[in-house]
Computed example of a mutant assay.
Amino acid sequence: MSAVNVLAASLLLALVSSMASASDPSPLQDFCAAINDTKSAVFVNGKFCKSPNLTTADDFFFTGLNVPRSTANPLGSNVTPVNVDNLPGLNTLGISLARVDYAPDGGLNPPHTHPRGTEVLLVLQGTLYAGFVTSSPDNRLIAKVLKPGDVFVFPLGLIHFQFNIGKTNAVAIAALSSQNPGLITIANAVFGSNPPINPDALAKAFQLDKQIVEDLQKKF
């Protein structure tokens, strides 16, 4: 094998290894409570770190997930995240939480993905129809009706949703394998991008009339 081929093979192996291990960075210290003051911090793992000697219990504390949130919106749902932005002590730990409230008779956490985290959903109240779609070429729907005490997992990066099929409010807690898992809501991303995607392209992609696409873009 020539030297060029050996170098190319080595680079490819390094790239594959890097992709295979992609995840939140492992902690290099006991903790790294996030801080916005860049003048007195060291930059690691995506957030500046407060000096360990200056951390307090409040850096590792969040309250309020017991409080119901309003679902008076077009989707009938409300997500209360607990991530590194409002719980600094999560920095570098690779986990986060969210409370999700659903309105009766159709409250929807719409199809979305978390590009940096797998999600485990625990239903506390109500009845949810939840599922995810596998990647191409199958695009297979894997879904189930969930009741209080049920747990369902949504693999990293796959489109998933939850829909309240019950007559009462529903509540769930989501745990995610990233301190900042990210969120891509499919409808918002496709029809509400800034600047807008060319409607001709979307009309062809979704096999819709161009006017329908333009109406959807106005909604988002």
Rank of each mutant, 00 (worst) to 15 (best):
N83Y: 09
N83M: 05
V84Q: 06
V84H: 02
V84D: 01
V84W: 05
V84K: 01
D85E: 13
D85F: 13
D85G: 00
N86C: 03
N86R: 07
N86M: 04
L87P: 06
L87E: 08
L87Y: 03
L87C: 12
L87R: 01
P88G: 07
P88W: 03
G89W: 02
G89V: 02
G89T: 05
G89F: 06
G89A: 09
G89D: 02
L90Y: 08
N91G: 05
N91M: 00
N91H: 15
T92V: 11
T92C: 03
T92G: 01
T92Y: 04
L93V: 01
L93D: 03
L93I: 05
L93S: 13
L93K: 14
L93Y: 02
L93A: 14
G94F: 10
G94N: 10
G94M: 06
G94C: 13
I95G: 08
I95C: 13
I95P: 02
I95D: 10
S96P: 11
S96L: 04
S96W: 10
S96C: 14
S96M: 08
L97A: 15
L97E: 05
A98I: 09
A98M: 05
A98P: 03
R99S: 15
R99V: 14
R99P: 03
R99Y: 00
R99M: 13
V100Q: 04
V100S: 06
D101G: 11
D101N: 14
D101R: 04
D101L: 00
D101S: 03
Y102R: 02
Y102T: 01
Y102P: 04
A103S: 15
A103G: 11
A103M: 11
P104I: 00
P104R: 01
P104V: 00
D105K: 04
D105L: 10
D105S: 04
D105W: 01
G106Y: 10
G106E: 06
G107H: 02
G107W: 01
G107F: 02
L108V: 15
L108G: 10
L108D: 08
L108Q: 05
L108I: 15
N109L: 14
N109A: 14
P110R: 12
P110Y: 13
P111E: 12
P111G: 13
P111S: 12
P111R: 07
P111T: 11
P111H: 11
P111V: 06
H112W: 06
H112C: 07
H112L: 03
T113K: 14
T113D: 02
T113H: 06
H114P: 07
H114E: 11
H114R: 12
H114S: 12
P115Y: 07
P115S: 08
R116I: 00
R116G: 02
R116A: 12
R116L: 13
R116W: 01
G117A: 15
G117N: 10
G117M: 03
G117P: 03
G117Y: 10
T118G: 06
T118R: 12
T118N: 03
E119L: 00
E119F: 00
E119Q: 07
E119D: 03
V120A: 15
V120W: 14
L121R: 09
L121F: 07
L121H: 02
L121A: 13
L122C: 12
L122A: 11
L122M: 14
L122R: 09
L122P: 00
V123C: 07
V123Q: 04
V123D: 05
V123S: 06
L124E: 05
L124Q: 15
L124W: 00
L124Y: 01
L124V: 05
